[in-house]
Amino acid sequence: MRTYHQLTDPDRSGLAAQIGAQRQRVAERLAGVRRIVVVMSGKGGVGKSYVTANLGRAAARSGRAVGVVDADLNGPTIPSLLQDGDAPRTTQDRPEPTRGLDEVRYVSMGQFLEAGAPLAFKGPSAESFVWRGAMEASALREFLADVEWGALDLLLLDLPPGMQRYLELCDILGNPPAVLTVTIPTPESRDAVRRAMRAAVDHGSELLGIVENMVGGELKGTAADDLAREFAIPVIARIPWHPTPDAWNQLVTRIPDARRTTDDGR
């Protein structure tokens, strides 16, 4: 009996081609984005979303066109950080991104869910582990490909803790995105963030630098400096509790290529 690869008639389902077309769609949509940066830590609760939102706002205030994808589908916090107040939930027929504080454009699963409701999918609940990951990756792909981002200087992706979403992104984008890591000063954070950074390096991502968050309070340790030394990258910001806008304005200037420059012919 002949095997799969020996059957050469066109396969009408063309599943591989369909997947290829999805990827193409992402690439076309993001062609006008100068810089994609994922904000990652591997550790929960260290301020990834807080840093993403405030960095995005500072970059927008400085005249850049900024988008934010809330890639934390199960714990979306970007809508509340970018405060859309009483804007209605986005619906499928409206592919423009929502405009948040300082005109940062964003999309979040939070806009699709009823307030406080967890992300749930229709369909059989049994063995949902089989398909749930694929479903989430598809949703993320649609956030990237189906939102009319327009020309952006900077597109930030706020990741959930862990590595899963980063790996999905490498697949969806077709190449590894630049990574900004967030850590708090503690040794526990350092160890979790180290794992995430290792994975990012292994997959070929450029490490843009480390943001040390929640500095100057109760939390003690040298996590940021340890990681900076290990990975030979800079600590590009040390963010205290309740920082002034200046802290964020400064961080913007330290993200390579986030600047909309006139001297590069644009």
């Binding site: 769609r25 499928q92 027929d93 409701a117 598809s138 949703a139 792909r141 649609e142």
Partner: peptide, 14 residues
């Protein structure tokens, strides 16, 4: 494919 096809078809939006 339409925009947000998977999300629209599969996410419980309530």
């Amino acid at each position: 494919a339409e925009p947000f096809e998977t999300v629209r078809a599969n996410v419980v939006t309530g």
